[in-house]
Each structure stands twice: as C-alpha cells, then as structure tokens.
Computed example of a mutant assay.
Amino acid sequence: MAKIDLKDKVVLIAGGAKNLGGLISREMAKKGSKIVVHYNSDSTKSAADETVNAVKELGSDAFSIQLDLTKAGNVKKLFKEAKDKFGRVDIAVNTVGMVLKKPFAETTEAEFDKMDAINNKSAYFFIQEAGKTLEENGKIISIVTSLLGAFTGYYSTYAGNKAPVEHYTRAAAKEYAQKGISVTAVGPGPMDTPFFYGQETPEAVEFHKSMGMGGQLTQIEDIVPIVGFLATDGWWITGQTILANGGYTTK
C-alpha cells in the first residue's frame, strides 16, 4: 500500500511563498512535514521569509530558494538543493502559473512565449525532475485551471498552455507507477487571490462569481485539503485532473 501520512515527509512547493502555495506550506507543516519554499521574483522574498518562519514556528523546518523555473537547469537545481538540505523529497507540488486574458488576435509572440514557458515548459520539467528525485511512493501534484473544462474565449494562452499538463500527468503516472509515485493535477476555479484580479474587470469578477456555488470565487482554503488528500489518503488516484471549482466548469 502506497498511502503515506505527512509526518517527517519533505514537501517541495513551487510557488510556495504566498496565496495557495503559502497556505499549502503552512498546512502541510502542521502535519509535521518539512517544507521547501520556492519563489521566483525579488518582490516575493519577504512572503517567502514569512512562510519559512511560520513553518518553523509550527515546529517543523523549512528553507526558501529563489529560481526561475522556466529554465530546466533551475528546476534540476531546485530538487537537488531540497535533497541536499533534507536528504530526500517525498511530495512535489507545483503551483506556478501566470494568467493572461487577451483576445486571440491581439496576442503577441512574446506574450505567447512567456506564457508557454511559465505554464507549460516549467510544468513539464518539474514533473520530469520530480520523477527522478522523489522517494518511492511519492506524490506529484500540479495546479492547473478549471478553464480546461470551459468553452470560452480570451484565455487562449493561459488555458492552452496549461492543457498539456493534463497529458504530462497521464504519461508520468504510467511511467512512474513502478516507483509507486502518483501523479495528479488539480484545476481550481477562479481563485480569490491577487493572481486572479489583475486580469479581470469588476463586471467580469461578478460573472465569475455567479458561475460557482454560493455566488463566490474559489477559496484557497477549499483547494488545500484536496492537495492534502491526494498526498495521503488519495494515493490511489493517479493520472487524473480534478476540477475543483464549485460547479464553475466540468468535462
């Protein structure tokens, strides 16, 4: 049986400093996990420091590392640093992403390349390196988007560049099964974080709210338990993308 609990496990979280990643870091630390907090930009350093301190105050251990994961070499470095520090990595969670809401006809090549590198390329090499590094019976969880189940315009690069992660999840689940590693993806609906609001007008925000149960956006507090479940009791789920969005979209 591949089921594990979180005590004394090492959890690496890409984008683990704030918002969804920050809450995953704290909640897994409460269960006794050691946390590797990855972040990308200088502006996020203070949030990463706060998250590391919060984990330590909970009685666990953590460290942060700043890397641009659109470069495959940096993904390799992330997992190496984690293993060098804690001796192992058991669970790898990738929350990295970037949203662009723009008409298809107006999207530039530079915008496409940037979105593709952040949402697609980095996810591919994260899953690849996790498969090489994780202990037996490890867990790989990618955060995608519920737009993968939507029939809509304006998110061609965001949803389009997240879509391949569904297949990476299936392919890796088959290839890593011999090590007992489960590979899953979670697609939240529009989340009530700054990540969402920067691309939306007030009218669009109200529309997105109207599409979910209770007339609300997805809360990060609703997604974290799903990630925790997939990392423990949900070990038998693999190769799947779970759209967790209060009825916002389905397939």
Rank of each mutant, 00 (worst) to 15 (best):
K45N: 07
K85F: 08
A130I: 01
G73Y: 01
A17P: 04
I65W: 04
S41Y: 14
R88S: 11
L243F: 15
K76I: 14
K209L: 07
S43M: 12
F63V: 02
K56A: 01
G228L: 15
T232H: 07
T232P: 07
F125H: 09
A105Q: 12
A62S: 12
D113H: 11
E111P: 06
D68E: 09
T107S: 13
S122Y: 04
G187A: 14
E27S: 12
A14F: 00
S156N: 13
S41V: 12
P103T: 10
S60M: 09
Y124S: 04
F86H: 03
N19H: 13
V165M: 07
G214I: 07
H38V: 01
H38T: 02
I141K: 04
V55W: 00
G239F: 04
V99P: 00
G215E: 08
R88M: 09
M115V: 13
E81A: 14
S46A: 15
K71D: 15
G247V: 00
A14S: 14
A72M: 08
F112R: 06
L6G: 09
I237F: 14
G131K: 07
A62M: 02
R88N: 08
L100E: 09
D49V: 10
V37M: 01
K102E: 11
M1I: 13
A163G: 12
I118D: 05
M98W: 15
T157Y: 11
W235P: 05
L12S: 00
T241Q: 11
Q178T: 12
F196V: 09
E111G: 10
P188T: 09
A72R: 15
T249R: 13
I242P: 01
K174W: 09
T145D: 14
A62Q: 02
K121Y: 07
V36E: 00
I13M: 05
F125A: 02
G138F: 06
D61S: 15
I237S: 08
S182A: 14
K83A: 11
F63P: 02
I24P: 06
Y197G: 09
F151M: 12
D113E: 15
F195A: 11
E111S: 10
A185E: 04
T70E: 06
A117S: 14
N74T: 05
L58F: 03
P190A: 08
M191V: 10
N119W: 01
V227L: 13
M191L: 13
P190Q: 01
V224Q: 11
A48S: 06
D61C: 02
Y248T: 11
I127N: 11
V75K: 03
V183G: 01
K34I: 05
K83T: 13
N137P: 02
L243V: 05
A48R: 02
Y154A: 12
A231R: 06
A173T: 03
G215H: 11
A171K: 13
I220Q: 13
L58C: 06
N161V: 03
I143N: 06
H167G: 10
S25N: 01
N245P: 03
V165Q: 04
P194N: 04
L100K: 14
K101I: 13
I143A: 06
G22A: 09
T44D: 15
K251C: 08
T241I: 12
M1N: 13
